[in-house]
Design a protein around this nucleic acid. Structure first.
Lengths: 254, 254
DNA sequence: GCTCACAAACTTGTATACAAGGCTGTAAGC
DNA sequence: GCTTACAGCCTTGTATACAAGTTTGTGAGC
């Protein structure tokens, strides 16, 4: 693969994994081309690769957007992760010492980040745990699949999870590693199943991704009470600034 | 996604799943463009998507080639399939009646194809079983992952499996469906694990993919005995007709 | 004041032109 | 006869130009 194209692809994917790009963000070809100092051609290549990996979507002649998974797609993503990651733990016969060491170090880093209140790197680390775990098998193919899935669930969390329960997740990770250390991989798999289930359950999948959510706040009684500035409320956040892809129009009954 | 581009992508992937395109086949951009009646641009898009899915690879300024997985990559692909498909069966709580019906019909089709000696559709059906099984969860994301993996293992089988044990595979499928029908999904998962293990074990991963294999036959003693026509043996099958990607040069000791 | 139609600006979609590099066949030199 | 250098051809790599469609801003009409 072309290194420059790979860089664009990797840069965007990393930014998403790190939670630095919101779902629904528009990624204009020309803007990215200028940013990376290449022509649109290369940007388009990268975007199409990312589209295949389920990270971005194109809306015809409107632009590329970071995906905003629907509730149904969110369920599928978590189910898929559950299937793969429990399957992975079940299929592990033994855990290599260095893998265990690496995982323990990773969990320690998670706790440090949480203790330091480093919201940014903590979200990144929590997702990274699962990618590290995939490395336990030394299977690059599987690792890449899990990496893409993690990117997807990261976006889902940003969409549907108002409050991130970082401490709880990190504690779960710790328990999973402990089970692995005991050589009780069946327990590790069960814990993983529960862990992913918890994360999924913590989401509010009924709260559809709604690009007008911010607008609604402006339309709340408080706004009408007069504490909003003279900004015209209807156009304060025009819909096209964060357009949606999956067809969740503003609910009409509002 | 653009429909025309999707068609090219899908056409090539289907052909691979059906075993109609050999690993290592060169896919020239211009040739495909003429074939599909579009410009190279669209072909390149499709190829890059397929590259992301692990189906083709580009060799700089030489062309696109259907992947020839190395022995290591073959092991990874089978391990990944084992992880995912056993994980899938374990996570199934119950098997919907219509899924069971569909799977039974599929196995029946496999047996018919084997009985009729229809080599072509039988290979396609054997791979399709796993894709159908993924549908059991109704999870499109997981189905697509398994579909790509199946494409990969199909190519691997074509590279490393001289004799396909179709009857045995079909019988395995039958047993798995039977276990599912009994509601014994743990047994189904175990059988699946064994089944994939058997398929993998049936491969000769020591036999590196060797584009000069056909050439070697010409150089065998029989050829020297004079039953080969006056075709100059060295250039009868020039290496560049089926170039290799993964760096398995002709062994020098020959 | 409000609605609707239209035009301008902007964005992606597609093709094409040219650049850059690899492979093959040929011929010169040994 | 054998090796090696080189020219020509072929293929992909990249940029750019233009086509097609979408969104938005403006102004006429009611």
């Amino acid at each position: 693969m072309n290194p420059a194209t790979a860089n664009i692809e990797e840069a965007i994917l990393s930014a998403i994994l790190a939670g630095r790009i919101d779902p629904g963000t528009r990624l204009g070809e020309q803007k990215l081309a200028d940013l990376f100092g290449v022509s649109r051609t290369r940007v388009r290549e990268a975007m199409m690769r990312l589209e295949t990996r389920g990270v971005v979507q194109v809306s015809a002649r409107r632009g590329w957007y970071v995906v905003e998974p629907s509730a149904e797609e969110a369920r599928e993503a978590f189910q898929t992760r559950r299937v793969i990651e429990t399957g992975l733990l079940h299929s592990l016969r033994e855990v290599p010492a260095e893998v265990l060491k690496s995982l323990k170090e990773h969990v320690a880093m998670e706790r440090d980040a949480i203790g330091a209140g480093d919201v940014h790197s903590r979200a990144c680390l929590l997702g990274d745990f699962h990618i590290h775990l995939a490395d336990a098998l030394g299977n690059r193919l599987l690792t890449e699949i899990i990496r893409d899935l993690t990117a997807r669930t990261t976006l889902i969390s940003m969409l549907y999870q108002p409050t991130e329960k970082a401490e709880e997740s990190s504690h779960d990770h710790e328990d999973i590693v402990a089970a692995m250390e005991d050589g009780d991989l069946a327990r590790a798999a069960r814990l993983m199943d529960e862990h992913i289930g918890k994360v999924e359950a913590g989401l509010d999948l009924t709260a559809k991704p709604d690009p007008l959510a911010g607008l609604r706040a402006l339309l709340s009684p408080a706004a009408f009470a007069g504490n909003a500035p003279s900004v015209p409320p209807i156009h304060a956040q025009p819909p096209h600034d964060q357009p949606h892809i999956h067809g969740h129009p503003a609910t009409k009954e509002d």
